[in-house]
């Protein structure tokens, strides 16, 4: 299974668009916000947690349709399905590869962008922590959505419609943790609930993803 993870990472690096695109998109969305709402730092620092989290969701969404589409088109998905590697494991590795190429760079870049939005100094640690805990769930949920739409032409829009509502709990608790951190309140409750969501996603969704892939491969 590690072979699949390494292959996907290698492909992301070589084919380009893996690491860079989502990150650049995140950067541009966050930079556009001060242009839209004006340079008032009080307003910016108030909306910064929400903006950073919403921008992360959208950036993660951007590369979801590539998770299975390329493997489906060149036939390797059918070959993987008939290989000794359990499809559940393949689904988890795909989600993990997506996280390493999207979620992790987003998490690392977020504090720098928090500075652009004059995020409260107390909140940086919680921004990093909440993204670190929350973005794996985004990748896993997105992988499930990608499996649902794998055989469809122009499934990208449908994928967004399916996946974005499922991102709501992660967004709620993620932004709430950062906001509480900025206000000097204890954010551990929100962080723990988000950790629960992530753990639940990784426990259940690989099975759902594999089941959906089997149906779509028929």
């Amino acid at each position: 299974m590690i072979a699949l993870l390494l292959r996907d990472l290698r492909l992301a690096v070589r084919a380009g668009g893996g690491f860079g695109l989502g990150l650049a998109f995140f950067l541009i969305v966050v930079v556009l916000v001060p242009f839209g709402v004006g340079p008032d730092t009080a307003v910016l620092s108030r909306i910064a947690p929400g903006i950073l989290w919403v921008a992360s969701l959208l950036a993660a969404l951007l590369s979801l349709d590539r998770i299975f589409a390329l493997d489906y088109e060149d036939g390797s998905l059918a070959l993987l399905a008939t290989s000794p590697m359990p499809l559940e494991g393949a689904a988890m590795m795909k989600a993990l590869a997506h996280w390493v190429t999207t979620g992790l760079p987003l998490t690392l870049a977020a504090p720098a962008l928090g500075f652009l939005l004059s995020l409260a100094p107390e909140a940086y640690a919680y921004l990093l922590l909440s993204l670190l805990i929350g973005t794996p769930a985004l990748s896993m949920i997105g992988t499930f959505g990608a499996a649902l739409t794998v055989g469809l032409r122009r499934g990208g829009l449908l994928l967004s419609l399916l996946v974005l509502p499922l991102y709501v709990p992660t967004l709620l608790f993620g932004a709430e943790a950062v906001r509480r951190g900025a206000d000097g309140l204890d954010p551990s409750g929100a962080l723990m609930l988000m950790g629960g969501i992530t753990a639940g996603c990784f426990a259940l969704l690989p099975f759902a993803t594999a089941a959906v892939l089997r149906i779509n491969l028929r």
Partner: peptide, 20 residues
């Protein structure tokens, strides 16, 4: 459909399947 990855070399393609 051969399942060949265009960004991997011939050896890398085969090594991947060997690993799987």
């Amino acid at each position: 459909a051969d399942g060949i990855k265009t960004a991997l070399s011939v050896t890398e393609n085969l090594t991947f399947w060997a690993d799987v």
